[in-house]
């Protein structure tokens, strides 16, 4: 199955969203910072891509708009939190949790505050995991942090490691407490020596000291690693490029963020 996440930067990109949905055959589309009411985007998706699309009910629709193609996936909101929305995601009938995240922004929150946010997400997820007795969690969103930022990899933060092998151990012990490990495949796309763009957003102002940043990410708990097929930073929406002439996100005709697509297997790969 394919999940596309895109921060559309408060711009009406419905046509591009439809093109992405068609071209990728996405099962699930999550839009962040969408200024267009969800029913309008839904109508367009139903008319131009597939009449099967629907919007699962949730109270956090202003922050995350979800468009789902198959009712079997469920996507009901099981927890509405502080800038996160956790959905029940059924992959081939197997229950998992998909946490949609929108981190506090870099312009108004310093590194420590963003790290603190990551820890507060981890605390909320701990609650959700206990409530649903499951640690099969996938997180997707605009974290407003890079994979190497402390909040992303602190044990008490999101504990997301660079390689799959690092996460296979399951947990990491820190100050007498075990923390679930996550795999962050976005590490593989940083810099020039990877396929595609070097990040999901390009900024050289005070907010972007590295030029490219990988703020939009998908991370997977060790317990769903076997479902991981791949992740891609999308640079096209059908025939339309999402990049400008310099190969950076085209913030004039599209968004300043590039979409991320996560591919999951229907059956675990043992």
């Amino acid at each position: 199955m394919r999940i596309v996440y895109w921060n559309v930067n408060r711009t009406d990109l419905s046509s591009l969203v439809c093109s992405i949905a068609s071209a990728t055959n996405a099962d699930l589309i999550v839009l962040n910072e969408n200024s267009v009411p969800s029913f309008i985007t839904l109508e367009k998706l139903q008319q131009e891509v597939s009449p099967e699309f629907f919007v699962p009910r949730a109270s956090t629709e202003k922050r995350f708009q979800c468009f789902c193609r198959h009712p079997d996936l469920d996507m009901t909101e099981v927890h509405s939190g502080f800038r996160i929305s956790v959905r029940s995601l059924r992959i081939s009938g197997t229950f998992s949790l998909l946490a949609l995240v929108h981190g506090v922004d870099i312009q108004n929150y310093d590194t420590e505050e963003r790290q603190s946010f990551a820890q507060s997400i981890a605390t909320e997820l701990e609650f959700v995991k206990q409530n649903w007795k499951s640690n099969r969690i996938i997180l997707m969103g605009d974290f407003n942090m890079n994979p190497f930022d402390r909040g992303m990899n602190l044990a008490a933060g999101l504990n997301a490691m660079m390689t799959k092998a690092c996460a296979v151990a399951g947990t990491r012990r820190h100050l007498d407490k075990d923390y679930d490990l996550y795999y962050n495949p976005m590490w593989s796309y940083l810099g020039d020596l990877s396929e595609g763009p070097a990040g999901t957003i390009y900024d050289t102002s005070r907010r972007g000291p590295y030029g490219w940043s990988m703020l939009d990410q998908a991370i997977l708990s060790h317990s769903v690693l076997s479902l991981f097929e791949g992740v891609k930073i999308l640079t096209t929406a059908g025939a339309n490029s999402l990049l400008d002439g310099k190969g950076r996100p085209d913030s004039v005709n599209a968004s300043n963020h590039l979409p991320v697509m996560l591919e999951l297997r229907d059956k675990p790969n043992d």
Binding site: S80, S120, V128
Partner: peptide
């Protein structure tokens, strides 16, 4: 009531509401 610790090391209690029938929650 979820007992936790803030990043600054303070005691924190997070208050969530749970809908008993569906088990859905909101912070």
């Amino acid at each position: 009531l979820q007992e936790a610790e803030s990043q600054a090391g303070y005691d924190m209690i997070i208050i969530h509401a749970r809908h008993t029938a569906s088990n859905r929650t909101a912070s």
